[in-house]
Design a protein around this nucleic acid. Structure first.
Lengths: 197, 197
DNA sequence: GTCTATACGCCGATAGAC
DNA sequence: GTCTATCGGCGTATAGAC
């Protein structure tokens, strides 16, 4: 758990340590003492950099949300056939998730016990709704099967994407990178598992 | 948060209350005081029924694990073509997840901070490995596409299934039941989202 | 920017009365 | 089977020296 400490910390470098511990132990399961040990400085020194534990959470989930929302503003997410835009957003969401793994992991695990957590959940729901709208358009275009109920399919797609944080570990030798994972997700989600379509 | 209290509690009826609160607040975010308020009895009365907070967790995740492992012993999970067995296990896993929703939800969220949590994670991994073996067989039979890497596809399938606990609420009017959700999962996973196979 | 020392409350758990 | 009262510890956070 203890880490070789740095000469000095900044809010950002401290955040990296904190997010790692939050993800290992859960936010509620992490005490300032845990963070102190992991950073190699005393509890009170942490308060020199941030106002408290909840500010670390807020900084972390903000970073995750900024990354996700940025995808929706990218050009291929805004123009073209809905099914293609959906496929693009699916792919890029996976890539952002992998690139910002610890931050997105934390975002996906907040339970709503504090104001910060409730705010994060609300922004996340907003993101989901925007992608769900895209999904609906693609079904209306006749490009996605309509025998699976719309909301259900949207949720299963997100469930598949979000579950990546539960097992993806970039440090494992030979691990796939974000683009490879994104390819697999798109093939699975849009093409299905079975051979011969 | 407070509930109309019962005349007397048993470990099982107390467990129902506790699991609900654990899922709302997270296990680490739930204090004995929270449980006491939710059950409508004092903290010390809880200790009359169970040894402590961790026993409640152990009882809950045990129930979830028993339900999941039972699927693997059912006849259609043991005989026949691997792809059909996999589809059956997929369907039944979803049904068990929905039938035992609060218990499975809790199981899927444990982080490994206590002995009980680590034990639960180990048994869950064992279940996953048994399904992964089935997946491998089906690919070897040529019934599942092999361009998506085996472990990756297994994880995405589980991710999709397990994500159901994040949104499924049986109390919502007109909500799908376990069989309908299972149908959708099987169609999505094996057939994909896109039209024309 | 970091430390030691400490405030003060909530934590899980227990004692013992009814 | 439930209660009130309480224990010892750990929680977040602060004061003030270096």
């Amino acid at each position: 758990m203890t880490t070789a400490r740095r000469d000095t910390y900044t809010p950002q470098t401290l955040l990296e340590v904190a997010v790692r511990v939050f993800n290992e132990r859960g936010y509620d399961g992490t005490s300032m003492e845990h963070l102190s040990k992991a950073a190699g400085i005393s509890k009170s020194s942490i308060y020199h950099h941030v106002a408290g534990k909840e500010e670390l959470l807020r900084r972390a989930v903000s970073r995750a949300l900024d990354g996700l929302f940025a995808v929706l503003t990218e050009e291929p997410a805004r123009v073209g056939r809905a099914v293609d835009r959906l496929e693009y957003v699916t792919r890029r969401t996976v890539e952002v998730l992998v690139a910002e793994l610890p931050y997105v992991t934390l975002l996906l695990r907040v339970r709503g016990n504090t104001d910060t957590e409730r705010w994060a959940m609300e922004r996340r729901r907003d993101f989901d709704h925007q992608v769900a709208a895209l999904f609906k358009e693609a079904v209306a275009d006749g490009d996605l099967r309509s025998d699976v109920e719309l909301r259900l399919a949207t949720r299963l797609l997100f469930g598949m994407i979000n579950s990546i944080v539960e097992w993806y570990r970039p440090d494992v030798r030979g691990a796939a990178d974000g683009v490879e994972i994104a390819d697999a997700v798109v093939q699975f989600a849009f093409g299905g598992l079975r051979t011969n379509g």
